[in-house]
């Protein structure tokens, strides 16, 4: 009996996201953004300071790849004029291109296509969603953030989201980690065991690009070469709210955030060149 009363003592601690905004989530430094037209010595210095090579300075301005960013904040210190930490947790995206900011016109088309393709596929899932998680070489922190979702504060069960042990009952695969040599096989098998329609969410910068730990003889550069990734949740690690945003995005329950855009005509090739 004492446990029952203790459970009641706290009252409601659960967030109301996504039906209402969440104060805590909104104050979280969610991702780093780059102003359009970031050029000059400062922008170059920021690119040189980035530990993961996430910033590339092109002819019309720098672009920042949030899929490689580990949120160390160095660029924001070196070039506060161009780079800043933007609060908010709705950081997940529907394509690799969408994580490179500012967004270019060519990327916009690719993103729209990815969004439509996923929308068609996951239409059947909306009522209740079963998740399976696979660790493909994480540093261990992403697992904490995903597991937090089942606790009372996030309580994803209220949204019809459940974790399942069997891939055969899973609709959405959450993958963490760089994609190590030895996990490629088990990850692929888990994905194949899931019935269609299914969606894959890459959780964390490591799973998207390999992050800091990627690129050795045994660690990969993300999991997209093993399983087809639909939703990418950047962060090192991403907060539970960001992971939740990624899951809701995968099943079409929320949209992406508005992105900073490059002027209409520019193309990603030009910028990269």
């Amino acid at each position: 009996m004492p446990w029952l009363t203790r459970g009641l003592r706290e009252g409601i601690v659960t967030t109301r996201y996504p039906h209402r905004p969440d104060g805590y989530g909104a104050s979280f430094a969610g991702h780093v953004v780059c102003e359009p037209g970031a050029l000059g010595a400062e922008a170059e210095a920021a690119a040189a300071a980035c530990p993961t090579g996430a910033i590339e300075v092109g002819r019309t301005g720098a672009r920042l790849d949030q899929g490689r960013c580990v949120l160390c904040g160095r660029c924001c210190q070196v070039a506060p004029r161009w780079f800043r930490l933007r609060p908010g947790f709705e950081t997940a995206a529907l394509s690799r291109e969408a994580l490179v900011v500012p967004e270019s016109a060519a990327d916009r088309r690719a993103i729209a296509q990815a969004r439509e393709e996923l929308r068609q596929r996951v239409r059947a899932l909306r009522r209740s969603v079963h998740l399976r998680h696979v660790d493909a070489g994480s540093d261990g922190s992403e697992e904490w953030e995903i597991a937090a979702l089942t606790g009372p504060i996030y309580d994803v069960q209220r949204l019809g989201i459940f974790f399942t042990a069997s891939p055969r009952h899973a609709d959405v695969l959450l993958v963490t980690g760089v994609g190590t040599a030895a996990m490629r096989g088990p990850l692929r098998l888990t994905y194949e065991a899931m019935p269609a329609p299914k969606a894959v969410v890459a959780v964390g910068t490591d799973a998207i690009s390999g992050g800091l730990a990627g690129g050795t003889y045994a660690s990969g550069t993300g999991v997209a070469s093993v399983v087809p990734v639909d939703v990418l949740v950047p962060g090192s690690p991403p907060s539970p709210f960001s992971v939740l945003h990624g899951i809701l995005l995968a099943v079409g329950l929320v949209g992406e955030r508005q992105r900073e855009q490059l002027p209409g005509k520019s193309r990603s090739e030009e910028v990269a060149g």
Partner: peptide, 20 residues
């Protein structure tokens, strides 16, 4: 399964990047 070869990742890093 989770071996990432971390010992191979350190050489050549700046001291600050090593901490990250």
């Amino acid at each position: 399964y989770k071996h990432r070869g971390m010992q191979a990742r350190f050489p050549g890093l700046s001291l600050a990047d090593g901490a990250l």
